[in-house]
């Protein structure tokens, strides 16, 4: 048997790559990242806008919720960077989801702050920071996607 006959077939290799390319993993990664960050930011706003000093156990509970949210965000980030890479189209979708999630979280944080009559400035400042970051990512992802589309069209034309 020669080397070519011993070689793992390309189709088998493609099959082994399937888990990395699964859309479900990418959706899970983006959801974990966004919901973790939004949850942590929301709980932090609740904590910061408490009118009076909180009992020790409540502070521990708030702290745990924030850590939990950040842990989910780290898991999502790890999935995206190490397990399920986002291609150009995925990045555009993920970035617009981030814009929507950060906008909704900011609105929620502002509503809580208004209701409690404290911390509105901090909620708006923090929230708009997230929204701005998400917008920058969305614009960059869109520009990269368009650049690749132009490149694909040019190469297809050259090929005839």
């Amino acid at each position: 048997m020669n080397d070519d006959e011993r070689r793992m077939p390309a189709e088998e290799m493609i099959g082994r790559l399937t888990p990395v390319l699964s859309p479900r993993v990418r959706v899970r990664a983006v959801t974990a990242l966004l919901s973790g960050l939004a949850g942590a930011a929301f709980v932090a706003t609740l904590w910061a806008s408490e009118p009076g000093p909180l009992p020790g156990r409540t502070r521990v509970a708030f702290g745990l919720f924030i850590v939990l949210g950040l842990a989910w965000a780290c898991y999502g980030g790890w999935l995206i960077t190490r397990r399920a890479p986002l291609f150009a189209r995925d990045r555009v979708i993920a970035a617009w989801l981030a814009v929507a999630a950060s906008g909704a979280t900011t609105a929620l944080m502002a509503a809580v702050a208004v209701q409690r009559g404290t911390g509105l400035g901090a909620a708006l400042a923090g929230g708009s920071g997230f929204v701005a970051l998400a917008l920058v990512l969305a614009v960059r992802a869109r520009a990269r996607h368009r650049h690749l589309l132009r490149q694909r069209d040019r190469l297809s034309r050259e090929r005839g």
Binding site: I14, L17, L148
Partner: peptide
């Protein structure tokens, strides 16, 4: 380029 856009068929073709 097609694979970078997210076309799985192109990526499979590249592997082949």
């Amino acid at each position: 380029v097609r694979a970078q856009l997210g076309e799985r068929g192109a990526l499979a073709e590249l592997v082949r």
